[in-house]
């Protein structure tokens, strides 16, 4: 990674943590629906960057959210999981050769971006809510929270990507 990329990612990390814990954790749309936009860091991490580093940084990211939210390690677990599984999802969304072609996320088609985000968000949320609720008798609550929070997160993440894409 170049110096520039390191700076951008460090800045993004801090900004997303603060955005999440100070604003997005308190939206409580319809009583309990919150978007989890901080995973944008994992989504935007250089696609051919070091995988071990990404896993470690994702742990730190999730852990910071947990410290602020008193949620033990649920965000850390969910973040580490999607960071580990990301290469396979990238392959699925952008084709087998994404690594060699040096693909940039904002240069791919909207449909490909959408597949990528939807898969990452739902995997993240299902682990997050399963661990947070930690009770199989509340499975309906887990599915409901995953679905609604997931849709909210996807809408926000797609908007952010479209707004900040540098196509021109």
């Amino acid at each position: 990674m170049q110096n520039n990329a390191i700076l951008i990612n460090a800045f993004r990390f801090i900004l997303l943590v603060f955005l999440q814990v100070l604003l997005l954790n308190h939206i409580n749309f319809l009583g309990y629906i919150n978007p989890y936009v901080y995973i944008l860091f994992i989504l935007l991490f250089p696609l051919n960057g070091n995988k071990g580093l990404l896993i470690f940084l994702s742990f730190l990211l999730g852990f910071s959210i947990d410290v602020f939210g008193d949620s033990g390690g649920v965000h850390a677990a969910a973040s580490v999981f999607i960071a580990y599984i990301r290469p396979w999802i990238l392959k699925f969304s952008f084709g087998i050769s994404y690594e060699h072609n040096n693909i940039k996320l904002y240069k791919t088609s909207l449909a490909q971006q959408f597949t990528y985000i939807v898969m990452m968000v739902f995997l993240h949320h299902i682990i997050l809510f399963t661990l947070e609720i930690f009770n199989l008798s509340h499975i309906l609550l887990i599915v409901k929270s995953t679905l609604f929070s997931g849709i909210f997160s996807i809408i926000l993440l797609m908007s952010i990507l479209i707004l900040f894409s540098r196509k021109n």
Binding site: F59, A76, E132
Partner: peptide, 19 residues
């Protein structure tokens, strides 16, 4: 990568169970 993932995941689950 898998070992790192496994280790960090276990730590997170442990912290979760703790709460």
């Amino acid at each position: 990568n898998f070992l790192l993932f496994g280790l960090l995941f276990l730590i997170s689950v442990y912290l979760t169970v703790q709460t």
